[in-house]
Design a protein around this nucleic acid. Structure first.
Lengths: 185, 185
DNA sequence: CCCTGATGACAACAGCCGTTGGCATACCAT
DNA sequence: ATGGTATGCCAACGGCTGTTGTCATCAGGG
C-alpha cells in the first residue's frame, strides 16, 4: 500500500509531534499515544505510516552535522569557526537534542551518535592536521567538549551555562577546540 | 515497622543490584522486577525496604564529589589536579554514571545533577579565583568539559575517548580545565 | 457512475510495569 | 514455651504500553 498526497499533512504532523516529544521526553517516555494526540491523529495511523515506534524515531533523528570546510580557513581561527558552527547547528536542528537525550539510555541511539561523530568529524579533523594518526583522538576530544556543552546547556540546563550568551560561550570554548584540533597535549 | 540486622544482607543485595541495573539501563528500563531478580529477592521486598522505585533510586545515586582543596595547590597545577581527581572519582563511584545516564531524560535526576555541581563545584572555584563573580560561569564551563568526558568515555563510549589511557586523557584535558578555572576568555 | 484502494476512528489485544495485600515461616524477647 | 513481629513468597490489582484488526468513509481513475 502506497501513501498519497492526501495523507501528507498527517504524516508531517506526526513527524513534527514526534520530534517535539522525543526531544522533550526522550525515547522511552515519549509514547506513541502522546505523539498521536499532539498531532491530532489516531495512534494506529502512526503505525500505518511509520511501521513502528523505532522506525519513527529513526526518521525523527535523521540529520547531518554539515561541517564547514575548515581546511580552507585560517589555521588560528578553526576553533572559533567550529564552535560557532556547532552552536548554530545545535540550536536549529532538534534531531541533535533528541539523539543526545536518547543516546544516554538507548544503545541504538548511542551507536548512531558514535557513527555520526566518527564519519563526519574525524575526516574533517584529518584534513586539518599534518599528523593524520592523531585525527581520531582529536576528534574524540572535540566531541567530548562539544557534547559536554550541548549536554549542560540544552539537556541538563545548568544555569551558568544556559545564561551565557552565544558570544561569551564561543569566546570560552573556542580556545579549547583550537587546542584539541591543532594544538599539542 | 523497623528493620533488623537479619534483613541487612537482603537490603544490601538490592542496593547493589539497583546500582548495577540503573547504571547499565537507566532509570526507566531498570525495572524493579529485574533488580529484585538480580538480588535473588522478591519484588515486593524492594517496596517494603525502600518504599518505592524512586526512593530506591535516590539512595542508589547518593554520593559526593569530594573535591580536594585546590586553593592550597600550586596555581599552575589546579587543572591537572582537578582532571585527575574527577577521573578517579568517576571510575570508582557508580553513582555518577547512574545519575548521568538518567539525568538526560529524568528531571529529578537532572535537578540533582544541577545541585551537585552548583553546591560542590562553584564554592571550590570561588575560593580559587580573585574574581568571585566569575565563579559560577567558570564552574559551569568546568562542568561542561567534565561531563563531556564522562559522557563520551563512560556512557556513549566513543572509541577514541575510551582508548585513551588515563594519563593521555589527563594531559589533554588538564589545560582546558586550567583555562576555565583561572584563565581569561 | 462505479469500484478500487487509501484514510481515519474505535476498540481490543497481550505484555509489561509499579505497587499492594495476604499468608505462611522463622526469629527474638519475655 | 509463647506471643509478637520481621521476613519472604505468591498472587493479584489497575494502568499504561506498542501494536493489530475491523469497519465505515471518502477520493480518484476507468
Amino acid at each position: 500500500m502506497a501513501f498519497t498526497d492526501r495523507s501528507l499533512p498527517a504524516r508531517e504532523a506526526i513527524l513534527r509531534a514526534a520530534r517535539d516529544r522525543f526531544s522533550a521526553d526522550g525515547y522511552d517516555r515519549a509514547t506513541v499515544r502522546a505523539i498521536a494526540a499532539d498531532a491530532g491523529i489516531d495512534p494506529s495511523m502512526v503505525m500505518r505510516y511509520f511501521g513502528s515506534k523505532r522506525q519513527l524515531f529513526a526518521l525523527a533523528v535523521d540529520f547531518d552535522l554539515r561541517f564547514p570546510d575548515l581546511a580552507a580557513a585560517p589555521r588560528d581561527q578553526v576553533g572559533r569557526i567550529l564552535a560557532t558552527h556547532l552552536l548554530n547547528r545545535w540550536e536549529d536542528d532538534a534531531g541533535l537534542k533528541i539523539l543526545l537525550r536518547t543516546a544516554a539510555t538507548d544503545d541504538d541511539a548511542a551507536d548512531r551518535m558514535r557513527r555520526i561523530f566518527h564519519d563526519q568529524l574525524t575526516p574533517m579533523v584529518a584534513a586539518l592536521t599534518d599528523d593524520p594518526d592523531s585525527a581520531p583522538v582529536r576528534a574524540g576530544l572535540v566531541s567530548s567538549q562539544a557534547l559536554g556543552v550541548a549536554l549542560t546547556r540544552y539537556v541538563l540546563r545548568l544555569p551558568p551555562v544556559v545564561d551565557l550568551s552565544r558570544a561569551e560561550l564561543i569566546d570560552w570554548v573556542a580556545p579549547t577546540l583550537q587546542h584539541y584540533l591543532v594544538g599539542q597535549p
